[in-house]
Structures are given as structure tokens and as C-alpha cells.
């Protein structure tokens, strides 16, 4: 899906936990997430902390979308 959407003309950031799969599939902008069942959260934390984690990941995603790249790029911390 990432590739088809990008092919059609929209920049896509793929936020996912298993980065090697995303690289194999061919996503261009990749942001590593927290964990498989909760990529944008962490149930072990308080709701406020979770939201902070989520906000940080979304900010990083938007940053990735604003970064010019020429090849597959993983935007790690």
C-alpha cells in the first residue's frame, strides 16, 4: 500500500515496528514505532506519558515528510 500510494504521487511516511519488513517491501520514509500491538503508545505508561510518546512519533513522521531523500531512509531517534 505504501508503495502504490507513493507511486500515485503522494509522499508517504511508514510508521511501523518491524523496520526490516518495511525496507524489504520498499517504503521510502520509515519511522520506527514502539511495538507491534501498540505502535503509537505504551500501555505500561500513564496516559499522559503515552500521549507524549505518540506526539513525538507524529512530529518525527511530519519531519520525515518534510525531508528530501533520494533513497530509503529510516528516521530513527
Amino acid at each position: 500500500m505504501v508503495k502504490e500510494i507513493e507511486r500515485a504521487g503522494l509522499p508517504v511516511v511508514h510508521v511501523c515496528t518491524i523496520v526490516p519488513i518495511s525496507l524489504t517491501v520498499g517504503a521510502n520514509r520509515i519511522v520506527p514505532a514502539v511495538a507491534i500491538p501498540h505502535p503509537f503508545g505504551d500501555p505500561a505508561r500513564t496516559a499522559a506519558e503515552e500521549k507524549e510518546i505518540r506526539r513525538h512519533l507524529v512530529e518525527k513522521s511530519l519531519q520525515a515528510l518534510q525531508t528530501e531523500i533520494t533513497e530509503q531512509t529510516v528516521f530513527a531517534d
Binding site: M1, V2, I5, A8, G9, L10, P11, V12, V13, H14, V15, C16, T17, I18, S22, A27, A33, I36, P37, P39, F40, V58, S61, L65
Partner: peptide
């Protein structure tokens, strides 16, 4: 694209 979207955040578990 028809709806004028600029960019996409695609999330996977």
C-alpha cells in the same frame, strides 16, 4: 488525490 491530500502517514502493526 481527488480529495486534495498532500501527504500520508501510513501506520502498521
Amino acid at each position: 488525490i481527488a480529495d486534495g491530500v498532500t501527504a500520508v502517514i501510513l501506520t502498521s502493526t
